[in-house]
Amino acid sequence: MSQSQQDIEQRVRLAGSNMFELLLFRLGEAPGSEDRELFGINVFKVREILAMPAITAVAGAKPEILGVADIRGQIIPVIDLARITGCRPKNGPKILLVTEFARTTQGFAVEEVDDIVRLEWNQVLSAESHSGGRTVTSFARIDGNVDGSRLAQVLDVERIVRDTLPGQTTEISEEATGRIKLKPGARVLAADDSGVARALIEQSLTAMGVPFVMTKTGQEAWKVLEDLLARTRKDGTEVADHIALVLTDLEMPEMDGFTLTRRIKSDAGLRHIPVVIHSSLSGSANEQHVRKVGANAYVSKFEPTELANVMRGALRAA
C-alpha cells in the first residue's frame, strides 16, 4: 500500500471514531503574562515541519508577513503567528509549519512544536460561545472532558490567511454562481465552524437564490435533522421535502463532518439527502477520503462557481 493510501485509510479510521490529530505548538508569552499558551492545528493541514529557513523580507508586505521562503523550489509566504496572536517569543520563531489548505500553501512561523495528540471531536468546544477572539475557532481539551484539562487554542487559519495574504478575496455574485432552484419549501443545511467561511457560504448561497439554514458544528446540524425527523413522522412528510442538500465542513467542534455524513447516510429517513463536503483540506487524497465515508460530492474551499456546480451535480444525481 502506498503512503498516500495509508494516509487515507488512517483518516477514514479516525473519522469513523469522530477523532482527529492536533499538532500543538507555542508562540511565546501570552499578552500581559509570562504564560506560554498552547495552540493547535489539524495535522492533516501540515505538509512538513522545518527548522526556520532563510526568510527574504518583501518590500511593502504587511507586518504580519515575515517574508517568503524557498521550500523545495516553491516560494511560499511566511506568516508571523506570534504577531497575529499578540504573543512574545523570547528567541524569535524557530520552527516553520508548511501548510496546505484552501488551495494555498503557506508557512506559519512558531516558537516551538510541543506534541501531536489524538482527540475526539467532542473534546473540542466552539470559541464563539466562550470568547470574543476572531483568530481562535475552538478550544481543545487536551486531557479529555475533565475539569481542569489543559486547553489548546485552535486557530482559525482560514481567517488568518484571508486577512493576511493578498489576493485571498473572492468575488461572489449571481453571475459567478448562477441560480439554483430547489423545490418549494426546501432549503440547504450548511455547517461550518469558521466565521469567515460561514460568511462566504452565506453570500454564495444568497447569490444562488438558495434558502438555507446555517449551523456552526456538525452537532448543531444533526440536531436540526433530528428535529425534522420527529416532525415529519407526525405530519407524514419526508425530511428531504425540507432539506434538499447538506453542505458541511470537515473540521468542526463537538461533531465533525465525517460523523455527520455517516449518521445521515445510515438513517433510512435521511440517506437520500445529498451531502456535499466543503473543506479546506484540499487534494485528491482528501477527495478519496470523503467518498469513503459516504459523501455524495467534495469541493475544496473556496471557489463559489465550483461550489455551485458541485451542488447542482449532487442535486441532479439525488
Rank of each mutant, 00 (worst) to 15 (best):
S33T: 15
E29W: 03
R271N: 11
I273M: 01
L50I: 06
A54Y: 07
T305Y: 05
Q123W: 06
G73P: 11
T261N: 05
F212W: 12
R118D: 10
D235F: 06
N18W: 05
S126P: 15
D163H: 10
G73H: 10
S194M: 03
D249W: 09
H272V: 12
E175V: 11
G40A: 14
G32D: 05
V196R: 00
T56D: 08
S282E: 08
K45H: 05
I71H: 04
G269H: 13
F139T: 01
W121Q: 10
V210G: 01
L189Q: 06
I8K: 06
L97R: 03
R118S: 13
S280I: 09
N145C: 10
S204M: 11
R72V: 06
A51E: 14
L151T: 12
T248C: 06
V68I: 14
E9M: 11
R316K: 13
V157Y: 09
L200Y: 11
D143F: 06
A191F: 07
E21D: 15
V46D: 02
D80N: 15
Q6A: 15
G148I: 09
A59W: 05
Q123A: 12
S4V: 14
M19F: 04
R262S: 15
E29A: 15
N296E: 09
L38Q: 07
K223C: 01
N286S: 10
K292I: 00
A186E: 13
R233C: 04
R233V: 05
D80A: 00
V78L: 05
R88P: 03
I75Y: 01
D192F: 04
V113H: 04
I273S: 03
Q5L: 14
E100M: 03
E64L: 02
W222A: 14
V154W: 08
D235M: 08
Q74A: 14
E174Q: 14
L14F: 12
Q123F: 04
V161T: 11
G283H: 08
V276D: 09
Q203P: 04
K94L: 06
Q168R: 15
N286K: 05
L165D: 01
Q219D: 13
L250Y: 15
E128Q: 12
T177Y: 09
P31A: 05
N296C: 05
